[in-house]
């Protein structure tokens, strides 16, 4: 029994069957990659996990509880964090402020009215946020406005924000899309490190095979909204069906 169990999920947009009978099981403390050509339904599937979309059929269970019908913030409180394709951070705020928000959310829940307390009085929050920045090598950018950072640093900050909530499942939506080679490698190293150091399950959607094969323990190939195969990276590499799906896309 995996930490994330997807059963018979289907989703239709008008005339397009975006997802068709998807079954998937992500085992705890592994890195599971979902790959597939453009339009295979990867992002749609991910959106079904986090409450952005509700599938027409099927069920999505996280740790034995259904996530369907819950809002994104409730699902996050259950222990799922999401990293977006383009880093979603608080661009107008400083790096430290960015870091403090998820730490507050972890401690205080979805809403707390602490309107007249000083920020710096919250020692535990400040310490935890600082430690996280230190961990991620962002300590020297503490006071910088988040929007003025490089793309790679923004990604790093976003991952740091997610990790500070100590999620049990981390969802990554093409985390290296649009990145230069060096940034991509940095991100791979960062994710490898996270995988080794923490008790965390990672589900990743990715286009870049280099990233996938460096990280994944298990791979599901999605094509036209249906899983083609699920196997270990070694077996996926040579799988005829996978080649067909990708060559089909190239042609």
């Amino acid at each position: 029994m995996g930490i994330l169990e997807v059963k018979n999920v289907g989703k239709r947009f008008g005339g397009l069957q975006a997802l068709n009978n998807v079954n998937l099981s992500v085992a705890e403390n592994t890195c599971h990659a979902i790959i597939g050509p453009n339009g295979a339904g990867k992002s749609t599937l991910l959106n079904c996990f986090v409450g952005k979309l509700i599938p027409d059929t099927g069920s999505v269970m996280f740790d034995g509880q259904s996530v369907l019908g819950r809002t994104p913030y409730e699902i996050n409180q259950m222990g799922i964090s999401r990293v977006f394709q383009t880093p979603e951070i608080f661009a107008d705020l400083s790096v430290m402020e960015n870091m403090m928000i998820p730490v507050f959310a972890k401690r205080d829940g979805s809403f707390r009215m602490h309107a007249l307390e000083g920020m710096m009085g919250e020692k535990d929050i400040v310490e935890k946020a600082e430690a996280m920045l230190e961990d991620m090598g962002l300590a020297n950018k503490r006071e910088m406005q988040a929007s003025s950072m490089s793309r790679g640093d923004k990604r790093r900050l976003e991952i740091a924000m997610c990790l500070s909530q100590e999620p049990r499942l981390l969802l990554l939506d093409e985390p290296t899309a649009g990145m230069a080679r060096a940034d991509t490698n940095n991100t791979i190293d960062l994710l490898k490190q996270i995988k080794e150091e923490r008790d965390i399950t990672i589900a990743i959607i990715e286009h870049d095979m280099h990233v996938v094969f460096s990280l994944a323990d298990r791979i599901t190939v999605l094509a036209q909204g249906t899983p083609l195969v699920e196997d270990s990276p070694e077996n996926i590499k040579g799988h005829p069906k996978v080649r067909e799906a990708y060559l089909g896309e190239a042609a």
């Binding site: 409730e74 998820p102 809403f111």
Partner: peptide, 13 residues
Amino acid sequence: KSNQQRMNYTGLN
């Protein structure tokens, strides 16, 4: 004001 989407995905209502 900065990013409601991130707020929601950070467990904040």
